Computed example of a mutant assay.
Amino acid sequence: MAGLFPFLIFSAVIGAGINAGLFFIFSVCIMGALGRLPAEQGVAAMQSINVVILNPWFMLAFFGTTLLSLVLVAVAFFTGSPARLYVIAGSLLFLVGTIMVTMVFNVPMNNALEALQPQSEEAVRLWSSTYLIDWVRWNHVRTLSSIGTLGCFVMAFRVA
């Protein structure tokens, strides 16, 4: 178990870093660029992103880090390692601030956007009045929680 714990933590560092980078680039670049487009084009582009992102690499990074977080919490309770508190903190940050926020806020907004024709008045209204504000706000939460997760897992790896 002693050799496995640092390996799991290291793997979680990689996963958290990938997720933090993904959410960061949406917060600081992609959504701003889409917001500069005419609403119909922004909606269509986001609808396309929401389809393309559901690929095996994204799933591995997103759900793999979720699985690692769950495994690490369980293992942390059975180890006396000084890394356990960082592992628990990082795992909880990821599970609540990234996974839960995604499932409760961002995915339902994506689904609502997906159900609309990009050029419809309803899509334009949703995009301009709600989506660009609320989706981005919740993405900032995911970004910060993923960065916090990354920091916790790096510290855990350091002391493991």
Rank of each mutant, 00 (worst) to 15 (best):
G90P: 12
R36D: 12
L93H: 05
G148Q: 11
A61T: 08
F7H: 09
V154T: 09
G64T: 10
V159Y: 02
F105S: 00
G80C: 04
S120N: 11
A156D: 02
P6W: 11
T143C: 08
G42E: 10
L72C: 10
V75R: 10
V75F: 13
A160K: 02
G80K: 10
F105I: 01
V28H: 04
L8S: 07
G64A: 10
E121R: 14
P56K: 09
G42P: 12
I18K: 07
F23E: 03
G17C: 11
V52F: 13
A16T: 13
I133N: 09
L113Q: 04
N111K: 13
V51T: 13
V75N: 02
N19K: 05
T143K: 01
S48L: 09
L85S: 04
R142N: 11
P6V: 11
F10A: 13
G90V: 04
W127H: 06
D134P: 00
Q47N: 02
Y131G: 01
F7G: 00
A74V: 13
A12M: 11
Q47R: 04
N139L: 01
N50T: 02
M1A: 14
V124D: 08
A112P: 00
V87G: 02
V73R: 03
L4W: 13
A61I: 09
S91R: 00
L92D: 02
G3N: 15
L126H: 07
L22G: 13
A45E: 03
F94M: 06
E40Q: 14
Q47L: 01
I147K: 06
V75K: 06
W135R: 01
N50H: 09
Q41C: 01
S120Q: 12
I88M: 10
A76R: 04
Q119G: 10
V124A: 14
A39L: 07
A44R: 14
F5T: 05
L85I: 02
I99P: 00
L54P: 00
F62V: 11
F5Y: 15
L37Q: 12
V13M: 13
V52N: 07
G80V: 07
A16L: 12
W135V: 04
S69T: 03
P118V: 11
V124P: 04
G151L: 15
N19E: 12
A83E: 11
Q117T: 15
S81F: 01
I133E: 10
V87T: 11
P6C: 06
T102K: 12
G21N: 10
T65A: 12
T65R: 05
A44G: 01
V52W: 13
M103Y: 14
S91K: 04
V51A: 09
G21H: 08
L85M: 06
L68H: 07
S69W: 05
I99W: 14
D134K: 15
I25C: 09
G15M: 08
E122A: 15
E122C: 01
T66R: 00
C29R: 07
E40D: 14
T130I: 06
W135Q: 02
A112W: 03
S48N: 14
